[in-house]
Every structure is written in structure tokens, then in C-alpha cells.
Amino acid sequence: MQKFTVLAGVAAPLPMVNVDTDRIIPARFLKTIKRTGLGKSLFNDIRYDADGKEKPEFVLNQTSYRKAQILVAGENFGCGSSREHAPWALLDFGIRCVIAPSFADIFYNNCFKNGVLPIRLPHDVVAQLMEDAKRGANATFTIDLEKQVIIRPDGQAVAFEVEPFRKHCLLNGLDDIDLTLQKAAAIDDFEGKQKTGQPWLHAGAKA
């Protein structure tokens, strides 16, 4: 996984509530066996018209936001399906951070597995950052994960919360599976006890 330490970039405003994962990447683009290449289909149905032409009013089609690395959005971002294709599409486009008042649980979780940082902030703070983002390429944010701050274009710092374990993994680009396998003995032990106590959960275990 790509590390996330300090990110400085343009933030795109997406002032919509309940942005669901079908909107982030419609199901018909999930027929891939790879993680990459989904960026071109990110937000497909609000980004392109029926003929595949860019809709000029959509934020990521505007010159200032084509290289946006941060997204500022409304409540309940990422609701709906569990598709990890949603963070894959964001990442493939170049977005490494999403700021919103709230996120759906599975999407929030999936972001951390892919080096994407979702930041939850109170409604009024997000509203201020949304105004900053509307200033386009003239206004960049710096996000420092170690210090847990967003530096706004005017230099003001906004603190944010992140769980220590997730932060540690993101800062160091750690692979969860490697970490878990360090606990292999505990897993073996649990399994052994379960086989005895609840043998019906294991094929071949004696009741």
C-alpha cells in the first residue's frame, strides 16, 4: 500500500449528500479483474453525458480541478455497496483524501486499505473547507497525517481525528495481512478451542 504522510493539493468541492458508491463507480464498470484503470469511469454518470462527452458543469471536468487530489463532500459519503472499486477509482483518478461530515462504514474502511485518507469533520468546518475548495487552483490544502492537521489556503490549521492503528498503517504503508500473520499463534489457538467447543463449525471435527 502507498504511504500517506503529507499531501498538498487542490481540493474539489462536491456539495452533495449521500454520494453512493453506484454514483462513484456504476456497477457496469465493475467487470474488471484489476484494481487499476477505473479513474476514467469515476463519477461516470454525472461526469459524462450519454454520448460519453464530458459535462462542463461537473467539477472534475473544470480546468482548475482536473488534477484535484482532495475531495470535499456532503454527509454520508460512500453509502451503498461494499465495492472497493469506489476507492480504487478515486485513487486511480488521483484523489488521496476525502473530507466530509460523515461516511458510510464500509467505504470508510476500504479507503484505509488503499492509502486513501477519509477525514470526518463537523458540518460547519466542512462548509468552510467547501468555500475554500470553490476557489479552485488558487487555493490548495496541505494535509499532514502525522500532525493530524489540514492547513487551509489562508494558513489556518484545522485538526482532525483518526484512529491510532489506522494512522500507523497509513503512515507506514503497512499491509494488514502481514500484521495479522504476526498473530498466527493466537489464531491457531482460537481455532483449536472452537473445534473442541463448537465442533459443528469445522468440517471433520468430532461432535
Binding site: E84, I106, N110, T180
Partner: peptide, 21 residues
């Protein structure tokens, strides 16, 4: 019973566990 992303699918296949709060 709950839904998981693909990284977690890989995690469960490999370890039969998940990291959860």
C-alpha cells in the same frame, strides 16, 4: 454478518480473521 471490501476478502481468505472495531 456484514459486507467487506476486496482487501478484506483477501485478508479473510489468508487469515480467517478481520481487523475490526
Amino acid at each position: 454478518a456484514f459486507g467487506i471490501g476486496t482487501s478484506e476478502v483477501e485478508h479473510v481468505l489468508a487469515t480467517q480473521t478481520l481487523i475490526q472495531k
